[in-house]
Amino acid sequence: MMEKYELNKNLAQMLKGGVIMDVTNVEQAKIAEAAGACAVMALERVPSDIRRDGGVARMSDPRMIKEIKKAVSIPVMAKVRIGHFVEAQILEAIGIDFIDESEVLTPADDLYHVDKTTFKVPFVCGCRNLGEALRRIGEGAAMIRTKGEAGTGNVVEAVRHMRQLTNDMRQVQAAPVEALMSIAKEMGAPYDLVKYVHDNGKLPVVNFAAGGIATPADAALMMQLGCEGVFVGSGIFKSGDPAKRARAIVLATTYYNDPVKLAELSEDLGEAMSGLEISKLENKYAERGW
């Protein structure tokens, strides 16, 4: 019999090649589904608004999440604060399909993440490098996403984290077996997972890119850099024509290797969300997570 964790990793496999879109109400969820999103992330404020408003960002109202769940047939995800296992218990109780333990919300615990092995529902967690990815997988994450810098419309951090992850994996793969324990120690990652990466050249779970993707070209860039799908947060519903942009990003994620198609898709999309310079940010969400 397959363990629950295996089934949860399998659900992530079904999301591959797809786009997961942040939505804040039923209407947006329907637009996302109609555009071809493979899942939606239900939250009260998209990251760029969280950034603008400041204050403490928490799990969304369960009623709003339930309404979105009722309105669409694709999987619905929702975010909990880092370490807030009770928010996770609440989301599990309302039958959410996937929990994002997210640095976009204000962390609830500055030492520990949620012990995800005690939940039946799958978790996705952010990472900036291989050590962080393997720590989260060690805690039970069924899916990983590179963090990028959410709510900025600036893809540079997503690229940085994806490249870092790939470089780390190459290094582990090329290392002699006797080096793996020292690598595990330096990375702060479980030995058995470092060994897995050494033997297989990839993570044991699906990896998506997130944080700053705003255009079809951004999505295709992340796919060409080796991620298996993308999260788009503020990039869609903070743009001039969300439905059209959402459709284009979905197609760009499928045809990421076809520049002619990407050129077609990038035409006449209206205004993209306005972006932020990373060095001018007050808060770097990516730095949250331990």
Binding site: L15, G18, A35
Partner: peptide, 13 residues
Amino acid sequence: GGESTTMGKLLNR
């Protein structure tokens, strides 16, 4: 396997 709504829409598009 995957999302049938996504694949159905892409078949059309």
